[in-house]
Each structure stands twice: as C-alpha cells, then as structure tokens.
Design a protein around this nucleic acid. Structure first.
Length: 504
RNA sequence: CGGAGUGUAGCUCAGCCUGGUUAGAGCGCUUGCUUUGGGAGCAAGAAGUCGCAGGUUCGAAUCCUGUCACUCCGACCA
C-alpha cells in the first residue's frame, strides 16, 4: 500500500483547491443554489455549534446578555452614519417588495414597499435605534448586548466559510458613559476572543489595531486578531471596534449624566463569524483532511467496531458498549468526553479513512483480536493515519484526558512555531520585496508570511505597497517592543512596529 | 462592474470543431459472488427531456440567435 494522502491536490500543489477538497472530504459544507450562500452540513455545523456554545458562555460570563434584533433594517437607518453608508452600501441586499403575484404563469413581485428594507450587513444602526430608547440615564449604563444572527454582505467573490454572502456570527454591542470605559470594553472583548482562539481552537493570533485605511466604517478604532494560516496568508479572525460617539450621535443615544447634562453615549461593537471555521481548517488541516483540536471536535473519540463474521458481532458490540460506558465517566477540559460509535456496515479501511478526513482526534478499532486480548488499537489524528497504538482498555480510559490535552497542545505548539518561523523582521525595502515575491511567477509557491517593521509611512504609501506587492498592514500589534527602528520604506524613524502580510 | 470561460447521470468530466443508430466514461449508488486487520476484486443493475427558449435542417448535445445561471482572473470585503 502506497502512502498516498487522502486529499488531492496537496497543500503544496494547490492550496486553494486543497482547501475546497478538505471541506468536501470532511463533509463540512457545500455551495448552494443561491450564489455565494453555503449549505453548512451537519459536521461543519457541529463545529460551529461547539464554537458558539463556548463563546456564548464566555461572553455571558463577561457580563453581556443575548437579545435578538430584526433581519431587516429600514434603508433610512443606514443613511444615518456617513462613513457607514459608504462602507456597506455596495454590498447590501435590498428588499423592495412584499407579496408575490402570478403574472403569465410566473411569480413576480407585487406590492412595492414604501421604504426599501436592507438585509442587515451588520446591526449597529438598528441596535443603535433600540439603544436610543433604552438608554435615558447614566444608571442605564453600561449596556451590554450580544446577538447570534445571520448577516448578508453581497460579496462578489465568495469562498466557503471565509467569505460567503450570508454568514453566521455573533455581534456584541455596548454603550458606556465614558470614552475610556468603552475603549477598555473593546479591548477586553478582543482579548476574550484571543483567549478563545488560543484555548479552544489552538490558534495563535496577533492582536492589534487596524490602520485608518482598514478601519470599520464609522469606527474610531478597530482592533483585530490576525492569524497566519498554512499558505502564509493572514486571516482576520475576530474584530472589535471602539465607535466613539459616532453611532450614538447618528442614532440619538444619549443619557442624563450624574451632573444633569445630556450626553452622547460611547459605544462598541465586536464580532466573530463562521469564518473561524475556515481559519481553523486552513491553520490545522493537512494532506489527509481536516484535523480538529479536541476542544472543538464535535466527536473526540470514534469507535470503529471490526466485525467480519456474524458470530463475532456480540462480543465486539459488547466490548464497544462497555468502553463507551467507561468513557462516559471521564471528562476533558471540564466536559464529558464526546464519544461516537460508527457501526455502519462498511469495510473497516474506508470507515477509518472517513474519520481521518473528518479530523476526529482519536479513532479506536475494536475487533475480535482486541476483545480477546483486552486491548485497543488507537489511531491519533496528529500522527500518521496508518499508525496504531496498542493500549489496554484501562490504559486508554485512564489516559484519555491526558492524551486529548496532549493533542490539543500539539496543535497549538505546531501553529505557534509555524507563526514564529514565518514572521520576519524586515530591515530594507529589498528584503521586503524578496520576502513577498514568489520564485515561480507562473505558479506561485507558498511564500511570505508576517513581516514586522517600523512604520513611518502614510496612506498613500500603504496603497502603493498594496498595489505593487498585494501586501497590506494587517495591524499595528498591541504588544509593541520598546526598540526603535528605521522604516524600510521612508528611511525615517518608525512610529510603531506594524505587521504586514497578504490577506484573505 | 471589467476580462475569460463553462452549463451533458448524484459528483467530476468526454463527445461539439467536421450534425447521422439506442448519448458515453470514472467515481458514487443498488444487488450478487469472491475477499476479509482493511481507503477491496469481479459481474450485473438503477440513474440523463445534453441549462432554458427560439431558429436552421430530412435529422441538433453538436450549427445560429436570444436568455438564464455558474466558475475563474481583476476591483470590493468579516
């Protein structure tokens, strides 16, 4: 048997195609009849649910409460904040009619709406309108609301999970009395995301601030988490905005201060989306398919009974049931182990590969041989798919928690050293160009990464670099070194170190 | 919105240039036999109004016109 990987092409051969193939092989999602909108299949949705559940817990623990606002936003609401209009106008889906009528055997829109409705691209405006009513006094502040919702941005070039016209997300919206308090909130939520990415998804992210050019439309400051994935491009995995008083002014969110003055509130908004699923795939998966860190894996351990003859069935099934019962007593990271039995009547080999491709951390094969010996054949997703460890039932059950923790850490270590290995301090313009230029122009190989450099440029220079190298300032990292340096582009002393890279 | 391309079985595609029996392949699916610690082999079978509408023709998946949809490359973007 040759060592052929399950996914073709491999990451090296064609990364974008590999990504699509992993999604298909792991049965995560597919394109739908609606342009740019994906169907998230059960396995993909289960991963999202895992993320959702844990994030929801953390957000609530941070003092926010869930609510739900309408899908439709009156057009006039979007017009209230000038920058916001400009930022989102081009990608809004607009509802202009209600009611369908039959005309010449076809359904056609009937009654035009007096005011068109926009399908929310984000909810600052409609939540702001509600906040304006809810907030009267400084005693109503801070107000901390979160909603789980779908949003629509009419993207021209969709890509499963990373950029779809409709996506699922969580958007938090808060209002505060003081600028500093709101700013601290935006930062606190960014750090919350950072911890979530680290602990649950094993994703190392660089926390930083966007340059004015890349800021959220209408924000005063936009904070971001940038993750370097395996083709060495950056993905914005989470974002948090300090909106100043812009939206408060636009929506009339004001309160009576303790001193009896009418003041505008200071607001924030922050979100992460199903894009995290795409980021997870691009960061951790390999040429054998999806690889899931145990903490987000919907199933952490899959049991694969090997039954060749009917007379073997009873013993094998009984052993499986016993193992499940024993594992049910065990937990990992504060939650009961998630165990599944795949009893489908399929050849063992193909079943085993299916679970490799789905990324389940531990696969256990139980056949008559194992039953007789009281042993288990254990396959780990962080090892070769053909490798099996022979463990006693007791060894496995007792060690399950530690094994999962080890795998989880392994994912983190690998991703973290990958990020370090592909982050380079850039001293000259030439070095910068060399770093971001593939050797093979026709068929660019995986190249580049994160470039760190002291920046003294302006917006025009930023644009020029983007045009010439397709590289942008991903962020100004929050954790700055105290070292001073010279900006490789301008020759002037840099103000801040920036992180540059090619982005998704 | 600019440039290029593609619509044929559940999926990936061949056939079209040069019109001509009953439209093909691989994968997947169903059944049978064989195999049995491993992504099985053999055989049989189910599955298609060839994107849609019109035209040319004795005859159209194939040629022409229109139309719709999608994909890729740009610009835009969580």
């Amino acid at each position: 048997m040759t060592e052929r990987p399950a996914i073709s092409p491999t990451r090296q051969e064609d990364f974008p195609e590999w990504y699509q193939q992993v999604i298909a092989a792991a049965d995560l999602a597919e394109n739908s009849e609606v342009r740019g909108c994906m169907i998230i299949k059960p396995w993909g949705y289960a991963i999202w649910e895992r993320m959702q559940r844990e994030l929801d817990r953390r957000i609530k623990a941070a003092g926010h409460r869930n609510a739900y606002f309408p899908l439709f936003i009156p057009l006039s609401f979007l017009e209230k904040e000038a920058e916001h209009v400009e930022g989102f106008a081009k990608e809004c889906a607009v509802v202009t009619h209600h009611r369908l009528e039959v005309s010449e055997g076809r359904l056609v829109p009937g009654a035009p709406l007096a005011e068109p409705l926009v399908v929310r691209p984000t909810s600052e405006t409609i939540i702001g309108a509600a906040f304006a009513r809810w907030i009267q006094s400084y005693r109503d502040l801070p107000l901390r609301i979160n909603q789980w919702a779908n949003v629509v941005r009419w993207e021209l070039r969709p890509r499963l999970f990373l950029r779809t016209s409709e996506f699922l997300w969580q958007e938090g919206h808060t209002a505060h009395q003081a600028a500093e308090e709101a700013e601290a909130e935006a930062l606190r939520m960014l750090r919350l995301y950072e911890g979530f990415l680290h602990e649950m998804l094993a994703l190392p992210a660089v926390a930083g601030e966007k340059t004015p050019r890349e800021r959220f439309p209408g924000a005063v400051r936009t904070l971001t988490l940038e993750v370097l994935v395996q083709d060495r491009k950056a993905i914005q995995a989470g974002t948090s905005h300090f909106l100043g008083q812009n939206f408060a002014r636009a929506n009339g969110i004001s309160f009576l201060s303790p001193e009896g003055r009418q003041e505008h509130a200071w607001t924030t908004s922050w979100g992460v989306s199903t894009r995290l699923v795409g980021t997870l795939i691009m960061a951790h998966s390999d040429d054998n398919g999806l690889a899931l860190p145990p903490r987000v894996a919907p199933t952490q351990i899959v049991l694969l009974p090997l039954i060749r003859r009917e007379e073997e069935r009873a013993a094998v099934e009984e052993a499986c049931a016993r193992l499940v019962a024993e594992l049910a007593e065990k937990s990992y990271a504060g939650e009961p182990l998630r165990v599944e039995i795949d009893a489908r009547p399929l050849p063992g080999g193909s079943k085993n590969w299916e679970w490799v491709k789905k990324g389940v951390p531990l696969r256990i094969e139980i056949g008559p041989r194992e039953v007789a010996a009281g042993m288990l054949s254990v396959g780990r997703r962080d090892r070769s798919p053909r490798e099996r460890l022979s463990l006693s039932v007791r060894q496995f059950v007792e060690g399950a928690e530690q094994t999962l923790a080890e795998i989880q850490n392994g994912f983190w270590e690998r991703a973290d050293s990958f990020r370090k290995a592909h982050t380079r301090r850039i001293a000259s313009r030439e070095e910068f160009i060399e770093f971001f230029t593939p050797r093979d122009r026709e068929k660019p190989e995986i190249h580049g990464g994160f470039a760190e450099l002291p920046w003294a440029g302006d917006v025009a220079l930023e644009e020029k670099i983007q045009e010439e190298q397709k590289v942008t300032i991903r962020c100004i990292p929050l954790d700055q070194t105290s070292e001073r340096g010279i900006c490789p582009f301008t020759g002037k002393p840099g103000n801040d170190w920036v992180l540059m890279g090619k982005a998704y």
